[in-house]
Design a protein around this nucleic acid. Structure first.
Length: 723
DNA sequence: AGCACGCCGACT
DNA sequence: GTCGGCGTGCTC
């Protein structure tokens, strides 16, 4: 009975009597699973010390978001340490003492959170079925962090653990741990001397301090090395450091800078493209303390760095810092929680500045790390604006829709090196606008945004009605600004305007990392701009109105961020670097670019948000789903007294997202519900009540799930797209 | 989520 | 008299 139908599995330990039934069931159910079969341990002796394990079940519905007590068999005593992955039987009947009957209940994965002497549970404990691996992957610090993240985002601990702990790869665990290298010597400040507070910040880190700063990086190629220097200074104190970057490209640049600074062996790169096995191997090396510094993309925000001394984030305004999976935590906020919980230094670095980091400065939690005006002038290109009505007289330039100033900048730049042309992504433009006054075109029936269904048809993005003869309600114009011309067509047109000049494009599908230092036109969409070896000679930022016209609270902030990112790749003004932006010169993001003043812009933006009661000054959450389900959830919410409910309003079909998992039939009463229109409500609380709001949402959501009330409702704390 | 227990209608 | 509907509640 110990062989399982010829499968070449290791022989089962001889079970105590009366267990055949369970073995047979497992064999029949999943004969292909090559795992050691879990035992039921009935009658087995328990561990002598601390025979109770408190287990967090990894998957399952939200209301399982609590600890369960299991007995620890003596045989598993040594391996069943806090933090290890285990399998437990869970479900009705599992503990039922109808002898010899069921050993039922499914096997679920989980983690031992602690070992204790006694249980509060009145009833017989089931035993842990199996210790999957003796590797303690869930440390107390990681658990505390994940709990805090789950609370902040009204999500379940199990969901957060899934983001924080990579899937196991048994092979990776067998590698013998290498001892950590000794702390490196304290690094030279290098280009940090351009910032008055820079050397002091490095010094504080190197001496074991925990300074907190918002760093507005000077334009140019130095920031990866500067970030690496900050990490090296923290390592010099004998502590670890963690830096999170928005994409693999920028993470690789900082990784390379660290290698140049420290050589190999003291740091590791944690990004998705390493593959699951390699990722787990590196993660383990970090957890085991072999490697003290981590550079990575957002999943690295949970990296179990030992004795963490600094957490850093680069470009926190980039949307890829929001995780895709529930509860969709933002790397900046996770790192802020870590900085507080693990008492570390904090650095948010950026060429621009978000309102969130502006708020850290305003309330005094962090200090600014900024260069003086003369350093900015020395590093930044000359920025000029041109309104796009002003078309060049040159026929080739007219054909490429270039204003004269832009045309000149391109022509002169190309004499001295590569020139960057930034074009908003096609499809990035959410709505049409009046050609004359730029007033967004709205549906005459429901005020939704109008879209161009095809060349000649207008349709409302919300209600779907057509709006054929359109007139601008504010200026009476009847011509619409259509779509943005995409990168590829822009490249074709520029190629005709500059015959013989090489034209390359970099966009979503094929992103260029770098371009050589030769005259060429580089057409790129925002975020995909290649680095030029010695900087671009010039840049032309086209169709600024498209970035600014997005119906989003962050449109201005985001546009400025995109422009600064591109303009920072251009040579300094003193070396002839020039930027021309095609946009309305009076708009404040445009002016902030011309003055190279992201800090001032963010401060004004923050003040405005405070005035309007918008995040991050207040905290918001969105609740969306079928109208009746949203209404029920709102009804059952026990909100803090200062909470406001905005809406609900209809959700345009395009934003409803994919339907929930298949096989879920909302109609249980036989009465098939018609697919109900979706609604979204926003909840808003004053500063300080964010935790109460999240707690209220979490318990209302849990109550719904426990009672299986209708279709699920999507809850999101800090929704990114409030317009 | 599963899966039991439990309390009311039409069937061999 | 039972079989079985799915409402309610628990799972260490």
């Amino acid at each position: 009975m110990s062989s399982e139908h010829g499968q070449n599995k290791p022989p089962a330990p001889t079970p105590p009597g009366g267990e055949q039934l369970a073995l047979i069931r497992d064999t029949v159910r999943k004969a292909k699973v090559p795992r050691a079969k879990p035992r039921t341990w009935r009658g087995a002796a328990l561990a002598e010390r601390l025979p109770v394990a408190r287990v967090l079940v990894d998957k399952g519905p939200v209301h399982l978001d609590k600890l369960w007590d299991y007995a620890v068999p003596a045989e598993l005593d040594a391996d069943a340490r806090p933090g290890v992955r285990v399998r437990v039987r869970f479900g009705a009947g599992a503990g039922n003492v109808r002898e010899g009957r069921r050993e039922g209940g499914g096997l679920l994965d989980g983690y031992i959170v602690e070992r204790v002497a006694e249980t509060d549970y009145k009833g017989p404990l089931a035993a842990i079925a199996q210790v999957l691996s003796p590797e303690p992957v869930l440390s107390p610090a990681l658990l505390a962090l994940c709990r805090a993240v789950a609370d902040r985002y009204a999500g379940s601990l199990a969901d957060v653990l899934q983001l924080a702990i990579p899937p196991r790869s048994a092979r990776a665990e067998t590698a013998s741990p290498t001892p950590a290298l000794p702390p490196p010597p304290r690094p030279e400040p290098g280009s940090w001397t351009r910032y008055p507070a820079g050397p002091g910040f490095l010094d504080a880190l190197a001496r074991g301090g925990t300074p907190r700063a918002v760093w507005t990086a000077l334009p140019g190629p130095h920031w990866p090395t500067e970030l690496a220097t900050v990490i090296a200074a923290t390592l010099a104190s004998g502590r670890g450091a963690l830096a999170v970057l928005p994409d693999g490209r920028s993470a690789a640049r900082v990784d390379a800078a660290l290698t140049a600074l420290l050589g190999p062996g003291r740091h590791t790169l944690l990004t998705a493209d390493a593959g699951p096995h390699e990722r787990y191997r590196r993660w383990l090396a970090v957890r085991r303390g072999s490697v003290r510094a981590v550079v990575g993309t957002r999943a690295a925000m949970f990296a179990p760095v030992q004795d963490l001394g600094l957490v850093a984030i680069w470009d926190d305004g980039d949307s890829s810092h929001s995780d895709d999976n529930a509860p969709r935590p933002h790397a900046r906020d996770v790192l802020l929680l870590r900085a507080v919980q693990e008492r570390t230094g904090f650095l948010a670095g950026d060429l621009s500045r978000t309102v969130e980091t502006a708020q850290l400065l305003e309330n005094g939690w962090a200090l600014p790390l900024e260069a003086g005006r003369e350093q900015v002038r020395a590093a930044a290109p000359l920025v000029r604006t041109v309104s796009d009505g002003d078309l060049a007289r040159d026929p080739a330039a007219r054909a490429a829709r270039l204003p004269s100033l832009g045309w000149r900048a391109l022509r002169e730049g190309l004499l001295r090196g590569p020139v960057l042309v930034q074009v908003p992504r096609r499809g990035y433009v959410p709505r049409l606008a009046c050609e004359r006054c730029r007033e967004p075109a709205r549906c005459p029936h429901c005020v939704g945004p109008l879209e161009a269904a095809d060349a000649d048809t207008l349709r409302c993005g919300w209600c779907g009605r057509g709006a054929h003869p359109w007139h601008c309600p504010s200026c009476g114009g009847n011509r619409l600004r259509a779509t943005v011309i995409g990168a590829r067509r822009t490249a074709e047109e520029l190629g005709r305007a500059f015959p013989g000049m090489p034209v390359r494009t970099s966009g979503r599908d094929h992103v260029l990392d770098a371009v050589p230092d030769q005259p060429a036109l580089i057409v790129a969409t925002p975020g995909a701009e290649p680095v030029a070896e010695h900087g671009y000679a010039a840049a032309l930022l086209l169709d600024g109105w498209a970035l600014l016209g997005r119906p989003d609270l962050r449109a201005g902030e985001e546009a400025l961020r995109r422009w600064l990112d591109a303009a920072a790749l251009v040579r300094p003004q003193g070396e002839g670097g020039a930027v021309v932006i095609v946009a309305e010169p009076t708009l404040s993001p445009v002016q902030a670019l011309v003055r190279w003043d992201p800090a001032g812009f963010a401060a004004r933006e923050l003040a405005e948000r405070a005035q309007l009661g918008f995040p991050p000054v207040s905290r918001m959450a969105s609740v969306s789903g079928p109208a009746s389900a949203v209404a029920e959830l709102l009804e059952s919410l026990e909100l803090p007294p200062d909470a406001e409910v905005l809406g609900p309003v209809p959700v345009p079909p395009a934003e409803q997202g994919r339907p929930r998992r298949a096989g879920e039939t909302p109609a249980k009463r036989g009465r098939p519900e018609p697919e109900e229109p979706w609604e979204r409500a926003l909840l808003r609380v004053r500063p300080g009540s964010g935790a109460a709001l999240a707690a209220a949402l979490k318990s209302a959501q849990a109550a719904r799930l426990v009672r299986r009330e209708g279709p699920p409702v999507r809850v999101r704390v800090d929704p990114p797209d409030i317009g």
